[in-house]
Write a protein that binds this DNA or RNA. Structure first.
Length: 582
DNA sequence: AGCACGCCGACT
DNA sequence: GTCGGCGTGCTC
């Protein structure tokens, strides 16, 4: 018999091996086999008749039985094609760490095809508690969190076994096989837990669906949400997407009937106050309303969270609040450190920084922003007797990124201050509005019912602010989807980022040109003008360009770009494609 | 991705 | 005279 095996390599095709007499393996089983002079762990994707005389033999099986079903293998193949990455890299990123010695395990439960249900979206304030309760008295379930910290919190909360890399390799393996045999009801993990076999009827819950942690760099190079939904439709498990502020894509799918939104009556809602920062943030990060809110909270012995953004990279008019945007793409332009230039992250066009604001003619155009360190120092000076910290979770005034609100979930804060919402709103990202809305909503949930949110911004009339203040999700998504539709962003169009990195400027430019020529004839694609991109290694040059296309854009570009992706040829740059860049 | 094989500089 | 740089090519 011959086994076809895929490895964690950027190579699409499987490798064939002879199966020694007595060694029986099946698709979905891991094996160790010689490849390029070393023994490597790969995944069997097919077993077929044949002697395989000319082939090298599989050394041994890693586990005594398959760890993935045929459906899971197919799911990975689909995800790999969809993200222009390899089957092997995708599969091997979604299985538990291999054991030191051959391990005796039970095979996964048999496939259970049935009528797939409609995925549900839970947006109400009680969503997490309801899921926790359901998990405590329900059947087999998998909870997927955006990061390891959230996995740890959920595992402790619902008393579940962990599948993410925050647990030891042994514990992860134990959790995987216990879940497959129905020995534990609930397992928690990050995206690496996506394929854990669950006896039917199973539930897969995606926590904080809007969180960018659900699409980190690296395999599987597809959004976790997409893989979860595809898995559920193949095995008819129940899907729950949890988020107070879902992605615009998910909200749109609700409107299209692809996801059922579970609404709940609006609960109590805190006051969201905006504080105009014109001329203030340059010298001091706290406006009067925010100072008062901190004072009041400290007096009442309640805690305050001040949310800061990591970096402010856009250019803002200090007089009218105008953010410099790309006229082609509508996203804010990033201020480049070196040289006085602005760049659009999407179309990558670079233009010189104007001397005056295109909006009002004012001359106070400046990058701005307060990082956590500067804010901490400033708050300490203003409140010398209050415990202020970026690191101590017991401090009265906590300063940190938006993830602070997630970490503090469950504790009603006295106030949340958004130090500079404009840093989020003007981020060079078409999701800026969505991110700002999510932050404001999370702040409101964190202070509900009796606290107060203070938003420092030059744009108090922004639709994300107004919708959050009014506790009106529909209002936000209606506006956001209109914007996405007009400018051709997801969910209406899909983006791809193609980059060519060469050892020289000329080589990178030539590679970029070859890609553009190859894609030129494909109907339905819009290619944005290429520009120099961030060259990652020490030397070399990178050019990249964005493609906008229909939902099947991966398939449309895969063919034309295949020759550039497949092999590194002499004098040719390394070409990479990122599908659905965020 | 590794890792090997393959032709040109400074050292035991 | 070798040791070794990493350039390109293959891995069942």
């Amino acid at each position: 018999m011959i086994a076809d095996v895929v490895f964690d390599l950027p190579l699409a095709h499987p490798f064939s091996y002879a199966l020694p007499a007595g060694l029986v393996v099946r698709p979905g089983q891991r094996v160790r086999a010689p490849l390029a002079g070393r023994l490597r762990v790969g995944m069997v994707v097919a077993v077929r008749e044949g002697t395989g005389d000319a082939l090298r033999p599989v050394e041994r099986a890693v586990e005594s039985a398959p760890i993935l079903s045929a459906a899971a293998l197919e799911l990975c193949r689909w995800a790999a094609e969809e993200s222009l990455s390899s089957w092997g890299a995708t599969v091997l990123s979604l299985v538990p760490p291999p054991p030191k010695r051959a391990d005796l395990v039970a095979p996964p439960p048999p496939a259970h095809p049935g009528a797939p249900g409609v995925p549900e979206l839970w947006v109400d304030a009680g969503r997490d508690e309801r899921l926790a309760k359901m998990l405590r008295d329900g059947g087999a379930a998998l909870v997927i969190t955006p990061d390891i910290e959230a996995a740890a919190r959920w595992a402790a909360w619902v008393d579940a076994a962990r599948l993410d890399s925050g647990a030891t390799a042994g514990a992860r393996r134990a959790a995987w096989f216990a879940a497959a045999r129905g020995r534990v009801r609930t397992v928690v993990g990050t995206r690496s837990a996506l394929l854990v076999p669950l006896p039917p009827p199973a539930t897969v819950a995606l926590v904080d669906e809007h969180d960018p942690g659900h699409k980190p760099p690296g395999a599987p190079r597809l959004h976790t949400r997409e893989i979860v939904m595809r898995r559920a439709s193949l095995e008819s498990s129940r899907v729950l997407l949890l988020s107070a502020t879902p992605s615009a894509e998910t909200w749109w799918r609700c409107g299209a009937g692809l996801i059922r939104r579970r609404d709940a009556p609006a609960g109590p809602w805190p006051e969201i106050v905006t504080a105009d920062t014109r001329g203030i943030l340059r010298n001091h990060p706290l406006t009067l309303p925010l100072t008062r809110a901190i004072e009041r909270s400290a007096r009442e012995a309640r805690r305050v969270a001040l949310i800061v953004s990591r970096r402010a990279s856009s250019l803002l008019c200090g007089e009218c609040g105008h953010v410099l945007r790309c006229p082609e793409c509508g996203v804010a332009l990033a201020a480049l450190r070196a040289g006085r230039a602005l760049r659009c992250r999407l179309c990558v066009r670079t233009r010189p920084t104007p001397d005056r604001c295109p909006g009002c003619g004012g001359h106070r155009l400046a990058p701005f922003g307060w990082d956590a360190e500067r804010v901490e120092a400033s708050v300490r000076r203003r409140f010398p007797r209050v415990a202020v910290s970026r690191t101590d979770p017991r401090a009265t005034v906590l300063i940190g990124p938006a993830s602070l609100l997630t970490a503090l979930r469950g504790e009603a804060l006295g106030a949340v201050g958004i130090v500079a919402l404009d840093a989020v709103l003007s981020a060079p990202d078409f999701r800026a509005g969505e991110r700002a809305f999510a932050l404001l909503w999370a702040a409101a949930e964190a202070v509900a019912p009796a606290g107060r949110v203070v938003v420092q911004t030059l744009l108090p009339g922004h639709y994300a602010v107004e919708a959050a203040r009014a506790q009106a999700r529909e209002r936000f998504y209606d506006t956001e989807l209109e914007f996405r539709s007009e400018l051709g962003y997801p969910p209406f169009r899909r983006l791809c980022l193609v980059s060519a990195q060469g050892r020289s400027e000329a080589e990178a430019r030539a590679g970029r040109g070859d890609c553009i020529v190859a894609l030129a004839g494909v109907p339905g694609l819009k290619l944005y003008p290429p520009a120099a991109g961030p060259a990652t290694p020490a030397r070399g040059a990178r050019w990249h360009f964005t493609i906008k296309g229909p939902p099947d854009v991966p398939r449309l570009v895969a063919g034309p770009l295949a020759p550039f992706l497949a092999k590194r040829r002499r004098g040719a740059p390394v070409v990479e494609v990122e599908v659905d860049p965020s």
